[in-house]
Each structure stands twice: as structure tokens, then as C-alpha cells.
Design a protein around this nucleic acid. Structure first.
Lengths: 125, 125
DNA sequence: CTGTATCCACAACGATACTG
DNA sequence: CAGTATCGTTGTGGATACAG
């Protein structure tokens, strides 16, 4: 694949007991990671606070931490779009976008089998 | 798929900031959970140590802990198949089996995008 | 606006040992 | 065979405050 930036692909998946399932689980099982990717998938590139608002419930520290982690894994891309009023834009890399199938499958399963019981009076119909 | 008999759904998914993606991520993002489910999917019902061998790398404590968690979430079923030589059998519930699509999607993505040095002859050691 | 700095709480993981 | 008990380490998440 053609890399979009100066970043070379880090082999962050290395391990003795390598298992694609475990590796993927550790990647998207960080509570916020899949949601962040999903929001980016749905709303396109976003700034830090816009993303924070979309995710809803995450703290700055955790979002910052997650973003850094996702960037290291070349799943998202960080671009400075303005220096004066310092503005940043987070977007998905092709690799990040490729997670759509997994995320959607997770969402679908969650909606089907986890049953939001939160408001089952009207929306479940 | 018509399960429809499972009306006693435990609401272990309840939460204020409910999100099917997050909920599913927390469920299968426990490092070993998806692997356990996958092994059960592939090899059918297994005993404790057989499962431990299949997962490979997990400790008794963690497996026991994971199993208990998965059982609580009605994803796996524990059945005592022998009292004298104490034997137990772990199997997937319909709900657990329904995770196959997600697990497979994760595995597929991991194999495609995480690139196990296995395929490329890069012994990362 | 975009984050970092602390600090803390709690859960997860792991190794070892031990029991029925 | 099928776990439990312990203990310690690390990781993850969260609140608040502050900085460039």
C-alpha cells in the first residue's frame, strides 16, 4: 500500500503468541477506539473538541491518549490546518477506514444482542 | 435467526452513555475473550485445560476469570459432564455463536492489515 | 482551540503455588 | 482434571487544572 505520509508502518503487532484476533481485539478493545473511528467514519475529519463532542463522555486526557495511540498505529491522521488559531484535523487513514466492516459488525451485533434496555418503551418497536 | 426464546436478557449492557459499539468493544476487547470464543467456535465444546491449551499463553487464573465473565454474559455455557473424574465442558450459547461474524471480521482484518510477520518471513522475535 | 500535567482508582494480566 | 488463592505489576480511565 502507498503510505500517505512520512510515516513508515511500525510493526506494533509483533509478538510471540501472535494471533490476529487478539491483536485486533487489543486494538479496538480500548473502549473509546472503535467509537472514535466510527465517529470519524460518520462525520469525516474533525477537530479535537468537535471529536470530543461527538464521542461524548470522554475526557481530554483520554481522547488525547487514544488519538496518540491510534496515530501511532497509523489508523488516523493528524493534520494541522491552521497555525494562528491553532487548529487540527483528525481523519482516518486508509487503514483506519478499512476497519469500517469490523466496527459496523460490532455495532450491528451490539444492537441486536445487547439490547439497549435503556429505552425499550418506544424505540425498540 | 429466530431465537426469540431468550427473553431473560441480563442487562449487563445498561449504561448512561450507551453505545452498541462501545458495549461490544468492552465485551470482546478483553484480550482473551474473542480468542476463547473463536476456539470454541472452531473446536466445539472443550474442557478447561483443553481450552487452555487451545488458547495458548493464558494462565489458569485469567482463563477462569474470563470464563466466569463470559458465562455471566451468557455467551458461553458451562456444563459438568462427569462428577467422578470431575469434568466440565464449555460451549457457546446461541448468543456466543452469533459473535462469529464479528470475530471472523476481526480475524480477517487482523490478518490483512496487521500483517503477521509470519507471512512475510520477518522474524521479529 | 488544543492539548498536557498530575493524581488517583480500579480493573486486567500474570506467575506461582496450592486444593478437591 | 478443574480450578482458587495471593500478590504484584501494568494498563486504562477519569477528574481537574493548567498551558501554548
Amino acid at each position: 500500500m502507498a503510505d500517505t505520509t512520512d510515516d513508515q508502518i511500525p510493526i506494533w503487532c509483533a509478538g510471540e503468541d501472535w494471533c490476529p484476533i487478539t491483536a485486533t481485539a487489543l486494538l479496538i478493545g480500548k473502549k473509546w477506539h472503535p467509537v472514535i473511528i466510527h465517529r470519524l467514519l460518520d462525520n469525516g475529519p474533525l477537530g479535537f473538541n468537535a471529536l470530543k463532542a461527538e464521542v461524548d463522555g470522554i475526557s481530554s486526557k483520554v481522547l488525547s491518549d487514544s488519538l496518540e495511540d491510534l496515530e501511532q498505529k497509523t489508523l488516523i491522521d493528524r493534520e494541522i490546518i491552521s497555525e494562528k488559531p491553532f487548529r487540527v484535523q483528525y481523519s482516518l487513514t486508509p487503514r483506519g477506514e478499512s476497519l469500517e466492516a469490523v466496527i459496523l459488525e460490532m455495532r450491528d451485533w451490539g444492537q441486536t444482542y445487547l439490547v439497549p434496555a435503556d429505552d425499550q418503551d418506544s424505540s425498540v418497536a
